[in-house]
Every structure is written in structure tokens, then in C-alpha cells.
Nucleic acid binder design. Structure first.
Lengths: 211, 211
DNA sequence: TAGATTGTTAATCGATTAACAATC
DNA sequence: TAGATTGTTAATCGATTAACAATC
């Protein structure tokens, strides 16, 4: 049955995409069945952790057999919401915004890019991936007309707070924030920060300490 | 004095860049002194945690006074190795590689971009940020000639494992991996993974559960 | 000196791992 | 049935928070 009532900790949630990734690989290699023990060896975690994690969401395995790779893959995909057809827009058509627009993995994971916005007149009308770059003036209208679940914030930190609040007010459900600041928004919008500099500094720390 | 002997946990290390960021902001606003209590309120963490974290590295404060913002900022920067003038190269001159090359924050944090490499003949010779894109054939020669501390892996997962091993063998100290795979390298090279898809899927989970 | 705030120890909380009965 | 492996409870470990003596 599993432990579906208890609140699932973020530690567990952050491991789900990794399980999903490994299961996808197994699937590609036509492996149909896997035990928590074997998966644990491939992933470098304990079998106990895998079973505990999965049982936050349900009992997906079978005693004596293990887990069906395909079934578990789909279940985790479903838990992650990958089959909900979430649509995204990108705010900021600079290098990072374009890179993210062209990142094929996101589409592979079920996310649909619906629009790209910027404030620079030079860019408006240009196309990225067959999607025309629109001016930020058109943002409100666009979001009201189309369903937009996730906004990717690929703009400098100067303007980001205002834009984020605006998007939250428009009913966007999630903000994927690449700007170098922590957003503090008056809303129950979900925010996922990707502070690339922080990550690089963590790497720098590790190098520094080892040598 | 502080607790300099004990191994510092990754949970603590990952919070250091955030402290650094907030202290930098305070500095910009000409705030010279801060208590753990006030910083904790700004950052949304406990004062206890801040004091515990800092004391892994030394006693940077003063009873009755708090912390000197500038001193603490510099100390954390030093712990993170930001003043060591680490040099980086980027492997992969696609959208992501270019975006990272143009990301000014990294230079601001003391990292110097020394080279960009790709395999596509169309790109070789082109310039990104005044740095000529070189063919991967030149990689070994380049790394042997110049000091390269960190390699940024902005290439598809197909080739990444081989390139990573090659870089590790050449003595590069850290790999900042953006490819959609976990590297498993025979070496004591430090690896920091940035799995953007994982981050997006975590956000997707949060949206899905809330609605 | 009195007030403030640190550094550090002790208490609590949560997450991970181990163990094992249930069961396929 | 016997062997394998799950789901789940209990034990352990580590990280966070609280408390307070030290001291500026």
C-alpha cells in the first residue's frame, strides 16, 4: 500500500528525477525488471532508501520479483507530473534563454514551450525554435489567452522580482528562476531556483579543500 | 576558535555561496556589521544555523557585536576558493556553452575563461567573448600548456564520459557537468552535476501536488 | 558595568539504514 | 514449496535547533 498520507520530504522528491532517469536508461536497454538491490548498486545508493522513497507514493513492486521497469518509470513520471502537458514560457531571450529554449530534453520530458519574451527591441520578432520573440508588453495578454503553467526566468536580477510578481498574479503556477537572487513573492506560486554561480562556487570549494 | 577539525558536511558547504551572496548585497548597501539574528531574518534561516555553519571554519564574529560584513564576506570567499584565480574551459560551444561563456557572474566571482572547445568544424575559429573556439583535437595540447582548473561540460551525454575521463587524466581538478548523465570517472577529480531537467521535474512535481 | 551576541554544548528532530515478517 | 524480494517497523545516524555560559 505505501505511506501515502505523510508529507513527502524534499530530499525524497529531489531523488525522483534521478530514479526516472535511471529507469529510462534501463528501459532503453530492454531491461524489463529490476530489484531495489540491483538498482541501488547502479545508482550508488542503498536499496533501503529506494524502497523507502518509493513507498512514500505507493507499493509499486512485488515481493520475490522486484519492480517492473516500465511500470515504475511511468508511475514516477506521473508523480512528477510529466504527462500533464505543462506549457512553459521563457522570459529573457538572451544567451541563457535561447539555450534553454533549444534544450531538447525539456520537450522530451513533456514540457511544451509556448512563448519567449524580452524587452530588447532588437530581438522582438526574431525566431527561436519557430517561436517568435514577443515584447514583454504582450505578456499579460498572452498569459490570459493561453494556458501557461511554468515561466522560466532567464533575465538579470534587476528586473526579476517585479516580473515574478506579475507572473504570479497572472496565475502562473511555477517559476523556474535562473537569476542570481532569491525570489520572495507574495503568492503561493512554486519557485525553483537554479543558482548556477552557487553551484560553481561549491565546485570551487571542493577543489580548494582537496589541494 | 571554531570546529576546524571535523569534516564539513555538504549541507553546510552548499549554504556558503548563499551566505556569500547575501553578504555581498549588504556590502553594496554599505552595511558594515550584522548579527546572526538579523542575517537569519533576511535569509529565512535560523540564527543558530548560521553560527553553527560559520563555526565549522572559524570564529569570525565577536560577542556583543556580531560580524563584520566585509571581513566575513572575504573569509567565506576565501573558503570557497574565489581568490585563487581558477581558470576554466568550456567543452561544447552550442547554445548552453555560449550562454555560460557569456555569463558575467562567473568572472565576477573570480573564474577566468581560458578556452572553448567543440568538434563541429563550422564553429572552429569563431569567437565567443574574444575567445576563439578550438577543435577538441587541440584539447590535450592546450591543457598541458595552460593551467586549467575547471572544465565545464556542455555537450550531449553521448560523448561526455570519454571527454570527462580525458580531462581527468590531464589533471583538470573539477568538472562542472551539464550533461544529462551522472559521471562515473576513474579519478579523484571533483564533479559537480547540474541536471537542469531534474530541477524542472522537481518544479513540475510541486505544481502537480499543489493542484 | 550592563547589554548584546557570540561560540559551543546539549536536546530535538528528521532522514537514512538495518532488520525482518509478509508474500509473491 | 523454497527462494527472493518487497513493504514496513525499529534502530541508528546526522543535521538542525535550543539553550546558555563566555566575553566583547
Amino acid at each position: 500500500m505505501g505511506n501515502r498520507d505523510k508529507k513527502v520530504s524534499m530530499a525524497v522528491v529531489r531523488r525522483l528525477p534521478r530514479y526516472y532517469r535511471y529507469l529510462g536508461e534501463l528501459l532503453k536497454h530492454d531491461i524489463t525488471r529490476i530489484s531495489s538491490k540491483e538498482l541501488s548498486q547502479r545508482m550508488g545508493v542503498t536499496a533501503s532508501q529506494i524502497r523507502q522513497d518509493l513507498n512514500c507514493f505507493g507499493g509499486f513492486g512485488q515481493q520475490g520479483y522486484g519492480y517492473s521497469v516500465e511500470y515504475l518509470y511511468k508511475e514516477i513520471g506521473n508523480i512528477l507530473g510529466l504527462y500533464n502537458g505543462y506549457t512553459t514560457i521563457i522570459i529573457g531571450a538572451g544567451n541563457l534563454g535561447r539555450a534553454l529554449a533549444n534544450h531538447s530534453n525539456f520537450e522530451k520530458r513533456g514540457f511544451k514551450l509556448a512563448g519567449i519574451f524580452d524587452i530588447s527591441d532588437d530581438l522582438i520578432g526574431e525566431e527561436v525554435r519557430n517561436i517568435e520573440i514577443m515584447h514583454m508588453d504582450k505578456l499579460d495578454e498572452f498569459v490570459k489567452l493561453h494556458r501557461v503553467d511554468i515561466a522560466v526566468l532567464a533575465i538579470p536580477k534587476q528586473g526579476v522580482s517585479e516580473v515574478a510578481q506579475r507572473l504570479a498574479n497572472l496565475g502562473v503556477k511555477g517559476l523556474w528562476n535562473f537569476s542570481y537572487t532569491d525570489l520572495n513573492i507574495e503568492s503561493d506560486v512554486n519557485i525553483e531556483n537554479v543558482h548556477l554561480s552557487d553551484s560553481l562556487m561549491t565546485l570551487s570549494y571542493q577543489i580548494t579543500q582537496k589541494n
